[in-house]
Design a binder for these strands. Structure first.
Lengths: 351, 351
DNA sequence: TTGAAAGCGCTACCAA
DNA sequence: TTGGTAGCGCTTTCAA
């Protein structure tokens, strides 16, 4: 703290940390600043003799030179940064997977992520967009953790953007979401391939995109297998375990109860397990169960381990970044893609 | 791509997106560039008449002006950005909490986070540090997901940095970690306060900082309660459920088995539940159980719900950012804090 | 109260 | 092959 007059860290007394610049490196190496830039960026349009290169590299090393990304960004008009706005982060394992998918790909491409969590607050989302715009990110990913329609500030259109696990009503923004109906189809088809003809379906709240899609898939698979749709076998719950429990009991009280149950998510499946156990029914011998979401901690710990469908969070994260990097330019003429990624089956022991 | 025939986006034909600058705003408002800066940044040292202010604000608005953060950073030497390097992100719920804690505080202070996940790879960590240094972040948080000693590149010392849930051997870098021994104490003391005198402890691998700390806390609480330490009651496992299962069986086979078990983490507790159930012992009436980590998905779903200690991930994230913001300057003379944050008890139904 | 201008560190153009 | 130099958009000093 002290020293003479306590200016320890302001003046050039060693404590000062003015980082060396290309200018310093140039001086040290006895070349021009531009030469330093050429060498450091390995610019191939100019040819610099190895000897000079070495001198520059050496000077940079001894000075501890580090390029200043802000200066480069200012000059080049690109920040090599991608903004990621997510509506949740701590409360779901999905967030981590999306981030990881996005980051892995971004990192490969030398890009870096700026992540902002909104906690579902629209004002924060708007502020986040503003901030990222000021940072001149090369693109913005707006990610929801549960497939839904969203309403977004128009400011998002000032930069390339892509929606992840969500979409806008008029589909005017590119999006990447899970193939819900494909998932519903896979689940149902897998069950029917195992010989089941009476397949119960405990769906999520009927208004959710996920529920609509999965139900469509269920219908399609049934149709394809030549199984008549029995409306009594389809129920809508609230996506929690208690609803899985209650609706499973309802289903099993039917005069012709199902031999397999497709659960709208893994929580519901957990409830189904409880109900089935209480009824003295064995999984999968008496009743087969298949879930959705692959919430590892549930699915892998349930006994028997739960067969389920995985939501492609990692893949969506990856896809979103790739899309942004491939579409750095605003090209209004191109179609706005609404991409849908498959939900892979994760086979365990419940069927 | 060529011109003449299809240069829609290069020239000023509407498609072009040269963002307006302070210069444009100045021109539009009929003032000098500096005036724009004064108004936009609300600089109080100069007094600008409301009328001028309004003109500037209006011009900025109609032009859709957005400050360029890179330019400001370059000029000011501060980026208002904090780097967060984490060794895992998708595989543990802890990451989300740390990030949220860090981000919530950073956001409040107008700072933004750059997050890089290393997957535990030292090379990636080193590259991440380099990248963040080039970005001139105002500070770096290096976060582990499990309390451990780490070995870090010296480059980390080029900027203010803080370690989260980890530390370096010589304690030369500031750190914030959970109060493991305080947690061990709380767990044990809580059990003894419930009247238990024979308290088993199934610890993690003995070499982990968490295990060492929790054991010390266990000892301290026993001593304080006047309970003699019985080495037979202390076991070391491998932090997974199977080890909790096996060691619980061992413990219960003792001629004087424990009436309560303190489990080194929630996975172990899960295994203990299985063993106890198999032995026909009721929780908490026959044996009380307390866990550690508060892995919500385990702890809250276990029946009876598990009483456990929470790791302060959110608080550590918050603390780390606060520390960095308070110590923007490199002050070598200050002591290097090794802060320890409490692990709060989360009461549920297992004791 | 306002304006001109310097300069943050970098890239890349143009000349030598 | 190398070097001088003009900005990128901003903040802030200094003069008017």
């Amino acid at each position: 703290m002290t020293s003479d007059a306590k200016d320890t860290r302001r003046k050039g007394t060693a404590g000062t940390h003015r980082r060396p610049t290309t200018y310093d490196v140039a001086k040290q190496a006895g070349v021009a600043q531009s030469t330093v830039s050429y060498v450091l960026n390995d610019v191939r349009t100019v040819t610099i003799p190895q000897e000079t290169r070495d001198r520059v590299l050496e000077a940079a090393r001894t000075l501890g030179y580090r390029p200043n990304a802000a200066a480069a960004s200012l000059r080049m008009g690109r920040t090599n940064t991608i903004g990621l706005i997510s509506d949740e982060i701590a409360t779901t394992p999905f967030a981590g997977k999306i981030i990881k998918g996005a980051q892995d790909y971004a990192w490969e491409q030398g890009k870096i992520l700026m992540i902002i969590n909104t906690d579902g607050d629209a004002d924060i989302a708007a502020a986040a967009i503003t901030l990222l715009l000021e940072r001149r990110v090369d693109g913005i990913i707006y990610a929801a953790m549960h497939h839904q329609e969203v309403l977004l500030p128009t400011t998002l259109r000032e930069t390339p953007a892509i929606l992840l696990d969500c979409f806008v009503a008029d589909r005017s923004l590119p999006s990447v979401t899970p193939d819900e109906s494909g998932g519903g189809y896979t689940a149902t088809q897998t069950l029917s391939a195992h010989g089941h003809r009476r397949i119960g379906f405990i769906n999520l709240q009927p208004d959710l995109p996920a529920a609509v899609g999965r139900l469509a898939g269920y219908h399609a698979a049934l149709r394809e297998a030549g199984i008549a749709l029995d409306p009594a076998l389809v129920r809508h719950g609230n996506s929690r375990a208690d609803s899985g429990y209650a609706l499973t009991r309802e289903l099993m009280q039917l005069t012709a109860p199902p031999t397999a149950i497709f659960c709208g998510n893994d929580n519901i499946a957990m409830g189904a397990y409880d109900a089935l156990r209480e009824l003295g029914l064995a999984i999968p011998n008496d009743v087969a169960v298949i879930g959705f979401d692959n919430q590892e901690i549930i699915a892998a710990y349930l006994r028997p381990a739960l067969t389920t469908l995985e939501l492609p969070h990692y893949a969506m994260g990856q896809w979103a970044v790739r899309y942004l990097l491939d579409h750095t330019e605003h090209s209004a003429d191109e179609a706005v893609p609404q991409v849908v990624l498959p939900c892979p089956l994760v086979m365990r022991d419940s069927l």
